[in-house]
Amino acid sequence: MKAPKPVNTAFGLLAEFRHPGDLIKAAKAVRKAGYTKWDTYSPFPVHGMDDAMGLKPSKLGWIVLGHGMVGLTGALSLLIWTSSIAYPINISGKPFANIPSYIPVVFELTVLLSAFGAVFGMFFLNNMPKHHNKLFNSERFKKVTDDGFFIAIEAEDDLYHETKTAQLLQEAGAVHIEPISAE
């Protein structure tokens, strides 16, 4: 039996660790315990953390590829249509569809659309922009963009239990643990 969850009082538990080395060890422990709704927080990406947390590879590459293909085919169709179908003009005796001459513009538009895919796709996957996050309710969490290393486990997680989860984090080497209020 799960202990009854206190409704709407806590968003989850926030545990602070001393340095990236401890953070990665703790992440392995949390993953081993089977939690799913949790994340590690750090001022910079910690090398090897994706493996420690067992994250699947990012899907961003496919988004960018899709955007790039739209840019490529869109630009080619625009150029061929405008210069050889809509209003063909003979320019220095070259063919109406002067493909070698189209490479610069087609290339630029492919890159432009791919870059849109890379940036806005990343925002989409990262759930950004999002102006309020319950984590920001913690004053201590402000250190995350300076020199703080944290793990937050959400109360939503099926395995979440106020004392047991706290104990797990304690054993994993946390130097400070606090609940995050949901308000």
Binding site: D39, P45, S58, L60, G61, A118, M122, V144
Partner: peptide, 18 residues
């Protein structure tokens, strides 16, 4: 709304690389 979460960093790094 950046939090510094590793799930964000993962996509972020990929985006930066691309």
């Amino acid at each position: 709304g950046w939090t510094g979460g590793n799930r964000q960093w993962q996509n972020y790094e990929k985006s930066y690389m691309i």
